[in-house]
Design a protein around this nucleic acid. Structure first.
Length: 1127
RNA sequence: AGAUCCGUAGCUCAGCCUGGUUAGAGCACUACACUGAUAAUGUAGGGGUCGCCAGUUCAAAUCUGGCCGGGUCUACCA
């Protein structure tokens, strides 16, 4: 055990962190923090697996700080908190990274590079930055098990996923269907709705939009239109922001009850007279109101104002079934081609559907069934067929004339890309088929990885029928504690309400294979739920009999045998990577193949935390899988394990987690999102290395609630470092300095708090109030509040008041009871504070804790993270005491401000202050802290004024809270009456306890406790007041006071000389002085006082002094020489 | 378009749930002090139409409605 408290020798948080980190690693502090709680109730935390194929950013630090502080807090509260780390390893981010690195595209896989080699590359790439991640994890002080993480590409992990999928399959919750899916040509894969819902996918882009004219066919339905325009051409106008879908157009959709108009006008591009059909209230979007019924005859290309008139109006259902001529006929989209795909299809008709609105465009929707979910639906209903004139790489197919093989968007980043949408529009303009072409800004979804616009595309896909369990998911969500609550009820709740089935399949290479095998004719199908099942169903011709790796391409070589003996091949799809992470509660333990007991103890999670962007990501997939799989989990665990789980507080009800914290984004200091593009990304390593993990974490947590977006400003960290850690550091250093001098090691018996001085009892009361409040805040997952409370305590109460007022107790006098009280009290404060801050600030707290504990040995623990969180001792809390200390602080502040006003420095003693007391309780409160005030502001006495003669001028204000309820509407009048009170009125009110008021002829009785009476002024005195406290200062400086002031000034100068000369605190000195003029007398009178203060054995006047130091005391010049006495 | 959060001093934030006296802190700035904790500290000062407009109320930063601005998310939006 050390005998001295260690001197930090300067506040270097990064250095402290790295020393503590070394110590943790050497002592396996993390592992111990878990093993020490063996047998305790578990607090279950799930780590959302990051993908280690990119560098960690500062935004990863905030959620990990929250995760860490909660886990540390719960550990200190006595729970056992295992934290298994994890890595998300599959999916698009990895694949695209590899593609980029190898300079290949999806099409090259299997050609230029084998799938085997490609997947091997992915496997290598996926943990490329694992070291960096582990490094940031360690450096930021995030305790998570890095040695035994779950990794989603492991066979065991995949096997668990297969088990889950099989269970869903058996329940009919996994099915195949063709549907219009968001598809990323650049990535070559379909996207799920939650991938589409990643932040940043919807972007405002300017696209070429075209309002095009479909030429109507004159028949029974449209006859009334043609008749109205004397048999001239009639066009249906439709608007599109995706002209590339026009070759795939097969229909037009109108709203059945929308009012349409047939308008005669001119085509602005060709100046030809045209008759167009458009929703009546959208005419204004295309034609100026002033042009209505304009002069048709005078129109030519130089006339700006196009004349138009409404020929007739009708409703959408009137043109239901109307036919039109194909807009862009080519070989590939001919009627024959259409009917080859969809026999009996009847395209190019006008249909009705309720999804049509008149908010945009023309009220007539160009319908290409392949490229929109609504289009597909309405197209199927009306059997118009389906045309997919764009291939999976995002380019037009052959047989589309000049547009064949052109990319519909710039998917290849071609420098000389010419927008085919513009070319289509130009062509239509020339053909008198375009009415308006313009750039249109709208928000359009983009692939979350490639940043390229997605398109909607008909795909075969496998779905999980989440909608079947919607009610359960909604109900369960109501029992999950969300921080902040609104994310759960609002963002997540709404999402659940509007859920669609989970599009699970992905046509990529590196991922968990969908474990479904089919016969070639598609008649027989088998879903595999384990490796055992796979081997049990092997076909004798299967080239692979003993599978080593469940990934492609090996898994695709496995041929299974159907019930009827036919060979079965696996469907080519992989599954959504979000299923990987959403299944981690089960797969991390290789459940149910292994670890059933461990799983039972660790399901569901008590707490998870990720960024708000995970709401529709991980939070959703965890919740969905949990809800879907509940019965299977119960069945698998069996009654015994379920009962055991319940004993330790685990309840399996379908929830995968019971509390979820979703933190906001980290923005740059100007409030912009951090992005590589803007170059405003903050490097966590740099930040942590420069300012230390403690200051960084403290800043991230206390600056704003975690769910508010954080404007990250490095100056904020500097401030935290200086104000909070600097103050705490100083307080510790102060303690260590004197405790080392006096040899305080807490070996004396604990002095009962009741026997300690008032100020000790006060700080301990405040400390325990703090503990109580911090515990409440932490229990409520409000670390920001907890941190701010601690900051206030350390900065204001402990350092700035307790230590400042108590300094003399530490350096003066003998080592006796009062001093021991002071040491014990300050020690307890420090030790408690470091335990309170340990969850947020794990390094510095541990350093201070160790420094303290190594001397006192009060805890048999090597780390603050192995001890218990402080528990508030209610018997220490004394509200009266805290209140009167507040009075003392206020009174001192008032006196200091008065001194400032009259320019009398604090070192100059003054005789007294006057405090008017309004009631005996107030006097008694102040009397108890009188000595503190006197010492703090350097005055001799406090005089209480009981005003019965009207000496004190008083002010009265209504107590609005009390009176408001009673008076209601009369409040204003009464308030005015009170404001007009004379001093006599107030005296009468105080004396009688009530007064009658005449309010508009009505007599009201006003009770004394319905008003607040304060002393406002003491005539002839300089006063200051705050709240009900008023203080007057006697500024008369008598000769004695002046002499004492001189003596104090002198002491101060000598102390400075002592310090400058490098004397130890305890060194004794002799002092020679000369000069002094009119203060010489003061020094003689206060000689013994001075000697005590400066530890001088003698203070001698001499006529002449060489080598002295010249000083000035209250304008008198002296020369002083101090001599250190040898011991 | 809908949901949600945010809008209070130059900056970062309290206060709002539960309406009530003169709306508070810290940072920054200015001035003056203080200095056996000194990479500290105190006092004072400037700086606010509490985003805007209505409503409820005796009383609104606080409650209600609407609007504006910003962020995030959702959306079949052609």
């Amino acid at each position: 055990m050390a005998s001295k408290y260690k001197d930090f020798g300067g506040l270097n948080l990064p250095k402290i962190s790295s020393e503590i980190l070394d110590k943790w690693i050497a002592e396996e502090a993390f592992e111990k923090s878990v093993s020490l709680r063996q047998g305790a109730k578990p607090f279950v935390f799930y780590e959302g697996p990051p993908s280690a194929n990119g560098m960690p950013g500062i935004h990863h630090v905030i959620s990990r700080t929250i995760k860490d502080l909660v886990c540390r807090y719960k550990t200190m509260q006595g729970f056992q908190v295992k934290r298994k780390g994890g890595w998300d390893t599959h999916g698009l981010p990895v694949e695209l990274g590899v593609e980029k690195e190898l300079g290949i595209t999806k099409e090259d896989i299997g050609k230029k590079i084998t799938v085997e080699e490609y997947n091997e590359k992915c496997r290598e790439a996926v943990l490329r930055f694992k070291d960096k991640w582990d490094d940031v994890t360690r450096k930021m002080g995030y305790w998570v098990d890095l040695k035994d993480p779950y990794i989603t590409f492991k066979n065991e992990y995949i096997e668990s996923l297969w088990w889950l999928l099989k269970k869903m399959y058996d329940r009919g919750l996994l099915y195949q269907s063709k549907s219009i899916q968001p598809y990323s040509p650049a990535a070559g894969t379909g996207l799920s709705s939650h991938e589409l819902n990643q932040p940043g996918t919807y972007k405002d882009v300017k696209d070429t939009s075209a309002t095009v004219m479909f030429k109507a066919v004159n028949n029974e339905t449209t006859k009334f239109l043609f008749d109205a325009v004397d048999g001239n051409e009639v066009f249906f106008m439709a608007w599109t922001t995706t002209p590339w879908t026009l070759p795939s157009n097969l229909g037009l959709t109108v709203g059945p009850s929308i009012e349409y108009a047939l308008v005669s006008t001119f085509n602005p591009y060709t100046q030809l007279p045209v008759n167009v059909v458009i929703a009546k209230n959208l005419i204004g979007k295309y034609l100026k109101a002033e042009g209505e019924n304009g002069d048709f005859a005078a129109y030519n290309k130089d006339v700006k104002l196009i004349p138009w008139r409404i020929v007739t109006t009708f409703s959408g259902k009137d043109i239901d079934g109307a036919q039109y001529e194909q807009l862009l006929p080519y070989e590939a989209n001919s009627l024959e081609a259409i009917r080859e795909i969809t026999p009996g299809a009847n395209p190019f008709v006008v249909m009705t559907d309720s999804f049509v609105t008149t908010e945009d465009g023309t009220g007539i929707v160009h319908t290409a069934p392949a490229f929109g979910a609504d289009d597909f639906k309405v197209g199927q209903k009306n059997n118009i067929g389906i045309l997919t004139m764009v291939d999976k790489q995002g380019k037009f197919v052959d047989g589309l004339g000049e547009f064949s093989n052109r990319y519909v968007k710039n998917y290849k980043d071609e420098a000389d890309y010419v927008d085919v949408n513009v070319d289509i529009s130009v062509k239509l303009k020339l053909e008198n088929r375009a009415f308006k072409v313009e750039k249109y800004e709208h928000s359009y979804p983009h692939c979350w990885r490639t940043d390229k616009p997605i398109l909607y595309y008909p795909l075969d896909a496998w779905f999980i029928k989440t909608t079947a369990l919607k009610d359960r998911m909604v109900e369960l969500n109501k029992t999950i504690r969300w921080k902040p609550e609104s994310t759960g009820t609002g963002r997540f709740g709404n999402w659940l309400e509007n859920m669609v089935d989970w599009n699970l399949s992905r046509s990529r290479f590196w991922g968990t294979p969908l474990p479904v095998w089919k016969t070639e004719d598609g008649e027989e199908e088998l879903c595999i739920g384990s490796i055992q099942e796979l081997t049990d169903n092997l076909h004798e011709d299967s080239p692979i009999k003993d599978i080593k790796d469940l990934h492609k391409p090996y898994v695709d070589d496995v041929i299974l045998k159907s019930a009827s003996g036919k060979p079965m091949k696996r469907v080519p799809d992989l599954i959504d990577v979000w299923f990987d992470s959403g299944a981690m509660p089960y797969a991390q333990w290789h459940f149910p193949f292994e670890n059933k007991e461990v799983f039972a103890e660790n399901y569901p999670a008590d707490f998870i935390c990720e960024g708000v962007d995970q709401t529709r990501g991980w939070f959703y997939t965890l919740h969905a899988i949990g809800s879907l799989i509940k019965e299977d989990i119960e069945a698998e665990l069996g009654a015994d394990l379920l009962a055991r789980a319940k004993e330790i507080g685990r309840e399996i009800d379908g929830r995968a987690y019971t509390t979820v914290v979703s933190n906001g984004l980290v923005l740059d200091k100007n409030g912009n999102k951090m992005s590589k593009r803007l170059g405003n990304v903050v490097d966590p390593f740099e930040t942590i290395d420069t300012y230390g993990a403690d200051a960084t974490r403290w800043y991230l947590i206390t600056n704003a609630s975690p769910w508010d977006n954080l404007k990250f400003d490095i100056n904020g960290i500097k401030e935290v470092q200086r104000k909070f850690f600097g103050t705490l550091y100083n307080t510790y250093q102060f303690f260590a300095l004197y405790a080392n001098v006096d040899g305080f090691t807490f070996k004396e018996a604990y002095i009962p708090v009741s026997e300690r001085p008032e100020i000790d009892r006060w700080i301990l009361s405040t400390l325990n109030t703090l503990v109580k409040n911090v515990t409440e805040a932490m229990d409520d997952y409000e670390p920001t509040q907890a941190g701010r409370l601690i900051e206030d305590f350390v900065g204001e109460q402990l350092s700035n008041w307790y230590v400042r007022l108590c300094r003399r107790r530490f350096w003066k006098g003998e080592y006796e009871k009062d001093k021991v009280c002071a040491y014990q009290t300050l020690y307890e404060c420090l030790e408690t504070v470091v335990r309170l801050i340990a969850p947020i600030s794990p390094f510095f707290s541990d350093a201070v804790f160790n420094n303290l504990n190594e001397v006192t040995g009060k805890f048999a623990a090597a780390s603050v993270h192995h001890v218990d969180f402080p528990v508030a001792n209610g018997s220490y809390i004394d509200a009266d005491l805290e209140q009167r200390m507040q009075l003392a602080q206020d009174a001192s502040s008032l006196v200091l401000s008065l001194r400032k006003k009259v320019n009398i420095k604090v070192r100059q003693p003054l005789q007294k202050i006057l405090v008017p007391v309004l009631n005996p309780a107030m006097q008694s409160q102040i009397q108890k802290i009188e000595d503190l005030i006197k010492a703090e502001v350097n005055i001799k006495e406090v005089e209480y004024l009981f005003d019965t003669e009207g000496f004190i001028k008083k002010k009265v204000k209504p107590n609005f809270i009390a009176l408001g309820k009673k008076l209601g509407a009369k409040m204003k009048a009464v308030s005015n009456a009170i404001a007009a009170f004379t001093t006599e009125d107030i005296i009468a009110l105080e004396r009688d306890g009530r007064i009658n008021l005449d309010i508009d002829g009505e007599i009201l009785t006003l009770d004394a406790n319905e008003v607040d009476i304060t002393a406002e002024d003491i005539p002839g005195w300089s006063v200051a007041s705050k709240g009900s406290l008023t203080v007057a200062l006697d500024i008369t400086i008598t000769e004695t006071l002046k002499q004492e002031g001189d003596a104090r000034e002198f002491v101060n100068r000598v102390q400075n000389i002592r310090k400058d000369s490098g004397l130890e605190l305890t060194d004794r000195i002799d002092v020679l002085w000369t000069g002094g003029g009119n203060i010489a007398n003061s020094l003689n009178i206060f000689k013994s006082y001075i000697c005590t203060e400066i530890l001088a054995d003698d203070l001698l006047y001499t006529d002449e002094l060489k080598d002295g130091t010249e000083i000035e005391v209250n304008e008198a010049k002296l020369n002083v020489l101090i001599k250190k006495k040898e011991q």
